[in-house]
Computed example of a mutant assay.
Amino acid sequence: MATTVQVTFDAADPAALSRFWADALGYELDAPPAGFETWDAFLDARGVPGAERNRASAIHDPEGVGPRLFFHQVPEGKTAKNRVHLDLRKAPGVTDPAERMRLLEVECDRLVGLGATRLTRHEPVGLSLGFIVLRDPECNEFCLD
């Protein structure tokens, strides 16, 4: 049996970063635990002060296909390039280079509108079908592929 994977992000603002990635991926915020209508009700029951309520957030694929993403607050900022990154597959199976890059550009514009920063565009060459590199609102690199 395969091991289930969760991808964890260090974050300054877990709530905001989880909302960005939920919008980017079409994911949903995790629901509060059973028996609680809201996360605030759950955190009230646990005695968590208001100032500590943005320590973590999580999102999931509503279709249950993709991995859960977990965001937890850390005191330090990002200092170097990611050693692992997400590739958002927005043109799988599209073999026409011009159409593929057009589709990636449309998605890039949408993600920039959500708060991402565009870094570089890599044209189709050799084995590469082309891709675009971006950063999320907390400067984590990711690719449109």
Rank of each mutant, 00 (worst) to 15 (best):
K78S: 02
V5N: 07
R135C: 11
E123W: 00
S18P: 04
Q73T: 09
A51G: 15
A22E: 02
V112M: 13
P49V: 07
H60T: 10
P67Q: 08
P67D: 11
T3S: 11
H122I: 14
E63H: 11
G50Q: 14
M1H: 14
P92Q: 13
R102F: 01
L129Q: 15
D44V: 08
F9K: 02
A41N: 05
V7M: 09
F142C: 03
R53S: 06
A11I: 00
A11M: 03
P92C: 12
I132N: 01
I132W: 00
A12H: 04
V7A: 13
E105V: 10
R83A: 08
I59V: 15
G77Q: 12
L29C: 07
L144H: 01
F71D: 00
T4C: 09
V74S: 00
T120C: 09
L69H: 06
H85E: 12
P49W: 05
R53N: 08
G47F: 06
V48W: 01
T3G: 08
A34L: 11
V7L: 14
R89M: 15
V94T: 13
F20T: 05
P49E: 05
R121W: 02
A22R: 01
V133F: 06
T3D: 07
C108P: 00
R100H: 12
R100T: 06
F142M: 08
A12G: 12
G93V: 05
F9A: 01
V94M: 05
G77P: 08
A34R: 15
P14E: 07
L114S: 03
I132R: 00
H60D: 06
D23E: 13
E138G: 02
L134A: 03
G93T: 05
A11Q: 01
R102L: 09
L103T: 04
T120V: 14
E52Q: 14
C139H: 15
V65I: 07
D145N: 14
W21P: 04
Q6Y: 03
G66W: 05
A16T: 11
C108E: 02
G77D: 12
L103D: 06
D40S: 12
A31E: 15
D96M: 11
E76F: 13
A16K: 04
L17Q: 00
K81S: 15
W21F: 11
P97Y: 07
L103H: 09
P124V: 08
L69M: 14
D30Y: 04
H122T: 15
A24S: 08
